[in-house]
Design a protein around this nucleic acid. Sequence first.
DNA 1: TTTTTTTTGTATCAATCACTACATAAATCC
DNA 2: GGATTTATGTAGTGATTGATACAAAAAAAA
Lengths: 198, 198
Amino acid sequence: MIDTKKITARGRPRSFDRDKALATAQRLFHQKGYDALSVADLTAAIGINPPSFYAAFGSKAALYAEALWLYEANEGLDVATALAPEIPLGQGVAAIFKQAADAYASGDARGCMVIEGARGTVDPEAGAVARSRMEASRSFIRDKIAARDLPQAEILADYIMMALAGLSSSAKNGLPTQRLRTLAAMAADGVTQHIEEA
Amino acid sequence: MIDTKKITARGRPRSFDRDKALATAQRLFHQKGYDALSVADLTAAIGINPPSFYAAFGSKAALYAEALWLYEANEGLDVATALAPEIPLGQGVAAIFKQAADAYASGDARGCMVIEGARGTVDPEAGAVARSRMEASRSFIRDKIAARDLPQAEILADYIMMALAGLSSSAKNGLPTQRLRTLAAMAADGVTQHIEEA
DNA sequence: TTTTTTTTGTATCAATCACTACATAAATCC
DNA sequence: GGATTTATGTAGTGATTGATACAAAAAAAA
């Protein structure tokens, strides 16, 4: 495979910062959702015209996919640390829920961008992308639990995803951080109880 | 031709059954969501033309409000019975969650029409209607709990709404009934634990 | 300079959205 | 019967959607 990385750019240089535009798009997608945010909104926020938009990002859905990836990299929950083998599972799950409570209620874009995008998005392509990322998260969590030789990895992963969806929903409904944290602690009790019973 | 509701109707009689059309609309709104369902879809499904649609229902948003009301009347959870004073609270909440697990995974329209509508709807008017109904449900639940002289009525109501949102989300993601029931039972544990701690 | 390559701004495109103007059809009231 | 009232079908409204055609502009390469 030949390196296709351009060392020197040919042609007219881009007049805007692509990474900055992507960050702007990610924030707006998170705030308003895919369907409620038009390409006209995006180009206006970035400060470019439609042809520049499509030349740089391909399509609205492709930009959304990039934005989701950026969101997961920057604001995603640290599941790997929370579910590390040396930490008791109940404690790890509680840590995840607490992280979620803090993250989902912070800033102007409330809720989880992936979870909300997977559910509410009308556009089929964008919805499929978000659902794919959500399923990837579920698989990651399930594998982390299964590594403990626990037979309930599947249902526990389902429960965690359910609780995160509930927390995201409550956050979007405007619940303050402190109240979300209480809900997170209560939801974590459902896990500890289920492990003890087994 | 078909329908003569009022025997003493004045002008040309309506050629379709309004109640049947409303039921059709309710099912479609629940299946596809408000934004993904166009007026053209609705008129095609009912078998009428746009003028008849608007003469009968006023607007798409007004029909959605009627559909939400019909949904709550026909498929709403029986919270009043579950949270009756003579039933232990933990048991009542578990009953609500089990009801939700069964209802949200049944048929072709998965999830709760109110919860999903309150969150994902882009249209401001329709979203506000759904959110209003959801807030009414929360208040009803809170009052039922507060009637037991429990100081945690607010947070418990928040927790129930959070769990219902999570169950609705998981149901829309395709989880089968049996798995949803297990999640419902786990979520109910979070309540019993919280009551015992107080 | 001349050529080549890429981005830019202007000005759209066709499709879809919720919604209606209008004339006709079908009923009751006088 | 004629007048009145309501619903219907045809056809189309303006607005908005995501995405483009086109030619000028701006850079490197020849």
